[in-house]
Simulated scan of single mutants.
Amino acid sequence: MRLISLLRLAAQAETLRWKRTGRGVAIQAALGAGAAVFGLMLLIMLHVAALIWLARDQGGAGAALIIAAVDLVVAGLLGWLAARHAEDPIQVEAQRVRDDALRQVGDTASRAMMLAPLLRSRSVKKGLLGAAVTAAVVGFIAKR
């Protein structure tokens, strides 16, 4: 029963971890798309007005360079916001719970494998020897 409960817990933790990971990716994608749309609309709507306003004092080339510098700053800021990756504490905790449950499943299974030869054997010496050999093999595999 405990083995099944641990496996169920590990599966639930993994499901929660993937949901939270997907949520984080979706939020990053939405921020990136919003940044792209905002940047495009802002540039289209304001460029013409700014170019006309700046061209009076700076001339056409100077006005275009000033607008390009502002565009670069805005694009860099929005790109940085979209690229930043903050860890979700719930996702990290779900991964820890999953790892703990799977470790306990492995421990329970290895104990069962060590006791199986002892329970099957009719001779105590033979059963203890089989249990010791099984324990050594399981320990060797677990360390890999």
Rank of each mutant, 00 (worst) to 15 (best):
R2Y: 10
R2L: 14
L3Y: 10
L6T: 13
L6Q: 05
L6W: 10
L7M: 08
L9M: 05
L9A: 08
A10S: 09
A11G: 01
Q12A: 15
A13L: 02
E14R: 09
W18T: 06
R20F: 04
T21W: 03
T21A: 15
G24L: 01
V25H: 07
V25D: 03
V25P: 11
I27D: 11
Q28R: 03
A29H: 05
A30P: 15
A30T: 13
G32R: 10
G32N: 03
G32S: 11
G32I: 12
G32V: 02
A33F: 05
V37T: 07
F38W: 00
F38P: 12
G39R: 02
L40K: 11
I44P: 07
I44V: 10
M45S: 06
L46Y: 02
V48G: 10
A49I: 15
A49G: 15
A49D: 15
A50I: 09
I52H: 13
I52A: 12
L54E: 10
L54N: 14
R56S: 14
R56W: 08
Q58D: 13
G60D: 08
G60L: 08
G62Y: 01
G62F: 00
A63R: 04
A63P: 14
A64V: 05
A64I: 06
L65G: 15
L65A: 15
A68D: 06
V70S: 03
L72Q: 04
G76C: 05
L77A: 13
L77T: 13
L77D: 06
L77M: 12
L78R: 08
L78I: 05
G79R: 09
L81Q: 09
A82Y: 00
A83G: 15
A83C: 10
A86D: 08
A86L: 07
E87D: 00
D88E: 06
I90N: 04
I90M: 06
V92A: 01
E93L: 11
A94N: 03
R96I: 09
R98H: 13
A101Q: 08
L102F: 03
L102T: 07
V105S: 09
V105C: 12
V105P: 11
D107I: 14
S110F: 00
A116C: 11
L118M: 06
L118N: 10
L119G: 09
R120Y: 11
S121H: 04
R122C: 11
S123R: 00
S123G: 04
S123H: 00
S123V: 02
S123Y: 04
V124C: 04
V124M: 01
K126N: 13
L128G: 09
L128W: 00
L129T: 08
A131D: 00
A131V: 07
A131T: 06
A132W: 00
V133I: 14
A136G: 14
A136L: 01
V138M: 07
G139P: 13
F140C: 03
A142H: 02
K143E: 00
K143I: 00
K143D: 00
